[in-house]
Simulated assay, not measured.
Amino acid sequence: MFKAKEAAGVTVDPERIPRHVAIIMDGNGRWAQKRHLPRIAGHKQGMENVRTITRAASDLGVKVLTLYAFSTENWGRPQKEVSYLMSLPVTFFNKFVPELIDQNVRVMVMGNIDRLPESTRTATLNAVRDTADNTGMVLNFALNYGGRDEIVRATQAIATDVAAGQLQPDQIDMQAVSDRLMTAPLGTLADPDLLIRTSGEERISNFLLWQLAYTEMVFTDALWPDFGPDELTAAVGEYQSRDRRFGKVK
Rank of each mutant, 00 (worst) to 15 (best):
M1A: 14
A8E: 14
A8L: 08
D13G: 06
E15S: 09
D26Q: 11
N28Y: 02
Q33K: 14
R35T: 09
R39L: 13
R39F: 05
G42R: 06
G42E: 05
H43G: 01
K44R: 12
M47C: 10
M47G: 14
R51F: 04
T52F: 10
T54P: 11
T54Q: 07
A57I: 05
A57H: 05
S58Y: 09
D59K: 12
G61T: 10
V64G: 00
Q79G: 11
S83P: 04
Y84K: 06
S87F: 03
P89F: 00
T91H: 11
T91M: 15
F92S: 01
N94L: 05
K95W: 01
V97S: 09
P98W: 11
I101M: 07
I101L: 06
R106Q: 10
V107F: 00
M108L: 12
M108C: 09
V109E: 01
N112W: 02
E118A: 14
S119D: 13
T120R: 07
A123E: 09
T124S: 08
A127M: 07
A127E: 03
A127P: 00
D130P: 02
T135Q: 11
G136C: 08
V138Y: 04
F141V: 07
A142L: 08
Y145W: 04
Y145H: 05
G146F: 00
G147D: 03
R148P: 06
I151W: 02
I151L: 15
V152P: 03
A154K: 10
A154P: 06
I158T: 08
I158L: 14
T160D: 14
D161W: 11
A163Y: 15
Q168H: 14
P169N: 15
D173R: 09
V177S: 08
V177L: 15
L181P: 00
L181V: 02
L194G: 04
R197I: 13
T198A: 14
S199E: 10
G200N: 15
G200T: 12
E201W: 15
F207T: 02
W210R: 02
W210A: 02
A213V: 10
Y214F: 09
T215P: 01
M217V: 13
V218Y: 08
T220V: 14
T220M: 11
D221M: 15
D221P: 09
W224V: 03
P225N: 09
P229Q: 11
D230G: 06
E231A: 14
A234R: 10
A235F: 06
V236L: 06
G237T: 06
Q240G: 06
R244V: 07
G247L: 07
K250E: 13
K250P: 12
